[in-house]
Nucleic acid binder design. Structure first.
Lengths: 111, 111
DNA sequence: CGGGATCCAAAACGATACTG
DNA sequence: CAGTATCGTTTTGGATCCCG
């Protein structure tokens, strides 16, 4: 009665929504990647590495691939030597920014 | 320049906020537990189990403990036989509901 | 009824080396 | 420069049994 706009009791619909969301932006690094691309714009691969000291090579490329597969980021490759690749948010990627803002705000206010 | 109210470039402050938040509400079950308690109110231990078919004994008690340790839920024990324990959200617990709403909304709108 | 303890499987994460 | 491949570690989740 308190949340008329959200119907969730139809067998697991709630869990699916929340878990789907977590599967897309959960984990240790995805939110940080999305944040940098969302707030600062386009970044190259090694720029992202520098912005996230602590992330490993493997994690960065893996998470970038997953985010691209989920349609949250664009990967633009220039066929030059040396290689050059630019990452940016898609429209869908920008749609998660409200979640980021809400979480970031909560994190600041609660220790 | 686009987000004057949020300063994050002071070495890892951003990551900390987001990661702290994820450490508190991340994982497979915490959000669902918080949702039930937030939207439906007080629940007993076995009520929560029935509301979350699929969760194991261990996970439920473990996550309830973590949520309690983080100050998001209250645990009220009645010294009766048989035992009776009620869980509910704290004020801090309710403060995460905006995150849940935002994520749930996103999950519904994006497949 | 509401857990705790133990053991095990699976997934996430990390270090390092190699490549076009 | 921008990755991939392999291996090992750490974290997370699950099955089962026990307890007051």
């Amino acid at each position: 009665m308190s949340t008329p706009e959200i119907q969730v009791d139809e067998k697991g619909k709630l869990k699916c929504c929340l878990e789907d969301t977590l599967s897309v932006i959960g984990g240790k690094w995805k939110l940080v990647i999305l944040w940098h691309l969302g707030k600062e714009g386009i970044h190259r691969y090694n720029e992202l590495r520098r912005l996230m000291p602590g992330i490993t090579h493997k994690m960065l490329s893996q998470k970038l691939k997953e985010l691209e597969a989920d349609g949250l980021i664009n990967r633009k490759q220039y066929n030059e030597v040396p290689p050059k690749v630019e990452y940016s948010l898609t429209k869908k990627g920008y749609s998660v920014m409200p979640i980021l803002d809400t979480m970031h705000k909560w994190g600041r206010e609660n220790e």
